[in-house]
């Protein structure tokens, strides 16, 4: 299975995101408080660029007037019609079993291990082998 080097870790600091093309697929990579997430950047509803949407906490309520806000859960809200998707699993809030968007594994790997030519790691989408990787840096790697 091919894996893709997205960027150096310092290029994606906490609170930022980056949308990249990997093998013809648009994928959003997020850094939320040091945790990395990646989701397919296409909303299953009408195809909006989902990963450009807002990251919101979860709001639930047992009955009118009570609000339970959970800021630790991260929901990505589609920029068009507002469907919410769990950043970790890609599942929609309203129909987690059937309406979901594809999540991808994100890892941080050292330039050394990448340079050592670990099998299947493609350093940088579309720039493949020619991308120079410095052994002393860490990289964000997405596995589609």
């Amino acid at each position: 299975m091919k894996r893709y080097v997205v960027c150096q870790t310092h290029e994606l600091p906490p609170g930022t995101r980056r949308i990249v093309d990997i093998d013809g697929r648009s994928i959003g990579v997020f850094n939320v408080d040091g945790e990395y997430y990646a989701l397919r950047n296409t909303c299953p509803h009408q195809g909006a660029a989902l990963c450009t949407g807002s990251l919101l906490g979860e709001v639930r309520s047992p009955c009118p007037g009570e609000y339970r806000y959970d800021g630790s859960r991260k929901l990505l809200q589609c920029p068009w019609h507002g469907w919410e998707f769990d950043l970790t699993t890609g599942q929609s809030w309203f129909d987690p079993a059937r309406t979901r968007v594809r999540p991808y594994d994100v890892t941080v790997e050292s330039g050394r291990s990448i340079a050592a030519g670990r099998e299947g790691v493609v350093p940088g989408p579309y720039v493949a082998e020619t991308l120079p990787v410095t052994v002393d840096d860490d990289y964000i790697v997405v596995t589609p």
Binding site: L56, V59, R60, S61, P62, C63, P64, E66, Y67, R68, C78, H81, G82, W83, E84, W93, F94
Partner: peptide
């Protein structure tokens, strides 16, 4: 409507 803007009325937990 609920799928998109249910956050306004979060007690509506089912369709």
């Amino acid at each position: 409507e609920w799928k998109g803007i249910r956050r306004e009325v979060p007690w509506v937990e089912e369709p």
